[in-house]
Every structure is written in structure tokens, then in C-alpha cells.
């Protein structure tokens, strides 16, 4: 693989070069200390050195709110809404967020392949960037390295004074055509260390989860959890949604829209007649964690958590999914080493 070198102060130049070819989306500073993926208007506003963006790039393929169809109440007819292909370069994506996109690709392809997601997903080009794990990341424990280039068209590895640039696909090579970058000879630096770990190899997590249904950790976290749903909404592999009809003031038509939903919310499992199938916060927390570490994982052999740390970083109650898993691991090992 040819490795090129991009000096830090030429990043904007690379962004501008890419913008000539397709629209480019990249992290931008937002609020006091947050970052959000937005379309680049000013190449120098794109940020490469950031801990995590609030919403992963899933928001471009599976938008927070999306019209599924529009309807005409007079004619009683409906027509399907447009779902244009992304057809853009996503610049500065962390490896766990691309891992999450691959998981969503699976969810929206399996069973009944869904046009909305799959159509929007077309033409997406990914330029990755390495990152230095902060106090929340634990991707290493779910098998996603900060330098993991899998699925990227171009990958940028951070050095002190710039980035190693690798084109990994013909598309990536094509995008770099026309920008002069010197070769990089020295090899890659050591990867950053994770501060957060799951204390068990990923391959064994399945066994841990099998014995964790009745664990006390669910009740314990439920005492602190306020059921706000934030942990679902920020998770790059959450794909649940709800659907609602909106009607215009003239009452002549409207749209059927979907928006992100979450299994931590009480009304998620409520049905007419007042039955709530996951009534307690403990049951809901367990469902969330099992969805990340067991249910789909049993089917695919992969954790459905990519270790981005968002749910923990954003939980005002400070509930940490790593701590939950580690408590399960601890209890599993206690049981496992105690002869019966």
C-alpha cells in the first residue's frame, strides 16, 4: 500500500480538493466542546482531531426524522417519498462509526431489504481518520482498532505533524488524483491506548450474556436511570424507529414520517389497553444491553456495540455500558471459578 504524507496545515487543501469532486461532510465544532458531522462549506472548518461526533454518520443514511410517504386526504392517495443517494464523501470518520454503518447495512438488508436506507446509502465514500481514545472509547474490546482501515476508501493516520494518507480502493485513489503529496516512508506510529476495557475477550462475551439475564446489575442501574432515551438516540447502531402521520393545517394532506425511537422509553413497548411489555427500567436496560451484546451477536458473531462510548458520555446519570458489562463479566467469572 502506498503511503503518502499530508502536513497538518494542508488538511484544508485536501478537503477543498475533495469538494471539487463530490460534496464533502466532515466533523465541525458545535457548542462548547462538541462536534457534529455537517456538510463542509469552508474547508478550514472541517475538524480531524476530535473525540467523537454527537451523532454518527448514520444520520445521513437513516435520518433522525424522515418522510416515508406523502398523502392526499382529498383523493385518498399516497406516494412514496424521495430517498436520494448520499453520493458524498464522509471525511474524518472514526473506525467504530464505519463499523456501525456496516452493522446498519446488515440490519436494513437482512430479512426485508429496505429501500429507504439502501438508496440513501449509495455513493457514500469514506475517508477515515485515526483517533486517540479518550476516557469513554473502548472499541478495542469489541475488535475495532483506531487504525482499522476496513471499509474505508482513504484512511488518514495521525502523526505529530500531519497524517499518513492511504488510498485503499480505486475510488480512493481516484479522489487523490491531482493533489501532490510526498511519500511517507517511516511506517505507522504506535496506536493509542484505550483507557476503557471490557475485561474479557470478545469471543467469550456470548457465554457471559447467556448467564446474565437475572443479574442484579439491571435493578441497580434502574435506580439511577431516568429513562430519558439518550443512550439509544446517540448510539450509532440503534436503528429502531416510530412512525407518525402529520397533517397540514388545511387538512388536505400530510406525510407519514418516521423518527428514531429507543427501547429505553416506556411507550416503546406499550400497546392499546395499557399493557407495557417492558414495564421497568431494569427490563429496558437489559434489553438495550442484550441488543448490543447478545441478540444480533448470536446471529452474526459480532458485538452490535462498536465501543464509541457515546451512551456513557451522554448519559446524565453516568451509567456506563462498560461498567455494566464488566460487572456481568465479574459475576460470570465468580460463578465460573466457584466449583458447585
Amino acid at each position: 500500500m502506498v503511503q503518502l504524507f499530508l502536513e497538518s496545515d494542508r488538511v484544508a487543501e485536501l478537503v477543498a480538493h475533495l469538494m471539487k469532486q463530490k460534496s464533502v461532510f466532515a466533523p465541525h465544532a458545535k457548542g462548547r466542546k462538541s462536534f457534529a458531522f455537517e456538510e463542509v462549506k469552508d474547508p478550514s472548518a472541517a475538524v480531524l482531531d476530535y473525540p467523537r461526533v454527537m451523532h454518527s454518520i448514520r444520520k445521513f443514511f437513516f435520518p433522525p426524522q424522515e418522510t416515508l410517504m406523502t398523502f392526499d386526504l382529498k383523493e385518498n392517495t399516497c406516494s412514496v417519498a424521495e430517498t436520494p443517494a448520499a453520493d458524498a464523501i464522509f471525511f474524518g470518520v472514526h473506525s467504530y462509526d464505519l463499523g456501525a454503518v456496516h452493522r446498519l447495512d446488515y440490519n436494513f438488508s437482512e430479512g426485508n431489504p429496505e429501500k429507504n436506507y439502501i438508496a440513501r446509502r449509495q455513493g457514500a465514500v469514506f475517508v477515515g481518520v485515526s483517533y486517540k481514545p479518550d476516557e469513554f472509547h473502548f472499541s478495542g474490546s469489541v475488535g475495532i482498532d483506531p487504525y482499522d482501515t476496513a471499509g474505508f476508501d482513504i484512511f488518514l493516520t495521525k502523526l505529530l505533524d500531519g497524517y499518513i494518507v492511504e488510498a485503499l480502493t480505486p475510488v480512493g485513489e481516484g479522489l487523490l488524483d491531482g493533489i501532490e503529496l510526498p511519500a511517507h516512508e517511516a511506517g505507522k506510529p504506535a496506536r493509542g491506548h484505550f483507557q476503557q476495557h471490557i475485561y474479557l475477550p470478545q469471543a467469550k462475551l456470548g457465554q457471559v450474556m447467556d448467564g446474565s439475564y437475572q443479574n442484579e446489575v439491571w435493578d441497580d442501574t434502574a435506580k439511577k436511570c431516568v429513562g430519558c432515551g439518550t443512550c439509544n438516540l446517540v448510539c450509532p447502531t440503534c436503528y429502531c424507529f416510530t412512525v407518525e402521520d402529520e397533517v397540514n393545517v388545511q387538512v388536505t394532506g400530510g406525510s407519514r414520517d418516521r423518527r428514531w425511537d429507543g427501547c429505553m422509553l416506556r411507550d416503546f413497548s406499550a400497546v392499546a389497553g395499557g399493557e407495557v411489555f417492558r414495564e421497568t427500567l431494569a427490563e429496558r436496560q437489559r434489553h438495550r444491553v442484550f441488543r448490543k451484546f447478545k441478540y444480533i451477536s448470536d446471529e452474526t458473531g459480532q458485538p452490535w456495540c462498536v465501543g464509541c462510548g457515546r451512551c456513557t458520555a451522554c448519559c446524565t446519570a453516568g451509567i456506563s455500558i462498560v461498567n455494566i458489562i464488566n460487572r456481568l463479566v465479574g459475576d460470570y467469572e465468580k460463578v465460573a471459578v466457584t466449583p458447585i
Binding site: 440490519n107 436494513f108 430479512g111 426485508n112 429496505e114 436503528y239 429502531c240 424507529f241 416510530t242 412512525v243 418516521r258 425511537d261 427501547c263 416503546f268 413497548s269 411489555f277 434489553h287 442484550f290 447478545k294 441478540y295 444480533i296 448470536d298 446471529e299
Partner: peptide, 11 residues
């Protein structure tokens, strides 16, 4: 159609 997640019973 197996997408929205609402109807899940465990897996």
C-alpha cells in the same frame, strides 16, 4: 416488516 424494533420479544 422486522425493522422498527418495537415488537421484539428478546431476540
Amino acid at each position: 416488516v422486522g425493522k422498527c424494533g418495537h415488537c421484539q420479544i428478546n431476540s
